[in-house]
C-alpha cells in the first residue's frame, strides 16, 4: 500500500471517527431533551394534530 493511500485511509478513518462521536453526542442530547419535554416516540393519539377524526365527525 502506497503512502498516498495510507494518507487517504487515515483521513477517511479520522473523518468517520469524528462523525461517529458527534452522532453519539447527539444521541445523548436527544435523550436529555426527550426527558425534559416529557416525550418519547410512542404514539400519542390525543395530540393537537390528531384532531381531524374526533371533532369533525360530530
Amino acid at each position: 500500500m502506497s503512502t498516498d493511500l495510507m494518507f487517504v485511509l487515515a483521513v477517511a478513518v479520522i473523518t468517520w471517527g469524528g462523525v461517529f462521536f458527534y452522532l453519539l453526542r447527539l444521541e445523548r442530547l436527544a435523550r436529555n431533551l426527550e426527558q425534559q419535554v416529557g416525550d418519547d416516540l410512542t404514539p400519542r393519539p390525543a395530540s393537537r394534530h390528531g384532531k381531524g377524526e374526533s371533532e369533525d365527525q360530530q
Binding site: 447527539l26 426527550e34 419535554v37 416516540l41
Partner: peptide, 22 residues
C-alpha cells in the same frame, strides 16, 4: 437508520416544544 431515527427524535421534541409554546 441510526441517523434518521436520531433526527426524527429531535423533530418530535421540537414539535412538542412548539405545542407547549402554543
Amino acid at each position: 437508520v441510526w441517523m434518521a431515527k436520531l433526527r426524527s427524535r429531535f423533530e418530535m421534541a421540537s414539535q412538542r416544544l412548539r405545542e407547549v409554546q402554543w
